[in-house]
Amino acid sequence: MNGPRVPLFLERQSYRRRRLVDASRAVPVFGIILFFVPLLWPQPEPGEATGLAERGIYLFLAWGLLVAVTGVISVRLQSRLQEGAPEERAEGKDVL
């Protein structure tokens, strides 16, 4: 699929952009790990309280962390997408 002339290395600007894309791809993986933590929580015995407030706070903190990380990556990625040449934006090729 790749054209005949695919550069093996990229200049700094493009390199950073590709690492941002990597980060952007990795965020949901961390999100899944964070949001699957409740599966590890012990089930409450009948009549026993679970510390629901703390558990809720954990989930919202995780949520906030994901939003913040995604926000930072997306804003940077967005500005670089605007700078990049059209074919750079297309990002079809896997080049480092």
Binding site: F36, P38, L39, P44, A49, G51, A53, E54
Partner: peptide, 25 residues
């Protein structure tokens, strides 16, 4: 105060259904 009320409410005794947690996400 709210945190204390939450922990004291019947909500806190509801177990988390793990299969539903996964399936519904």
């Amino acid at each position: 105060e709210v945190a204390a009320r939450i922990n004291a409410s019947p909500l806190a005794e509801i177990p988390l259904d793990r299969s539903r947690w996964l399936a519904l996400i």
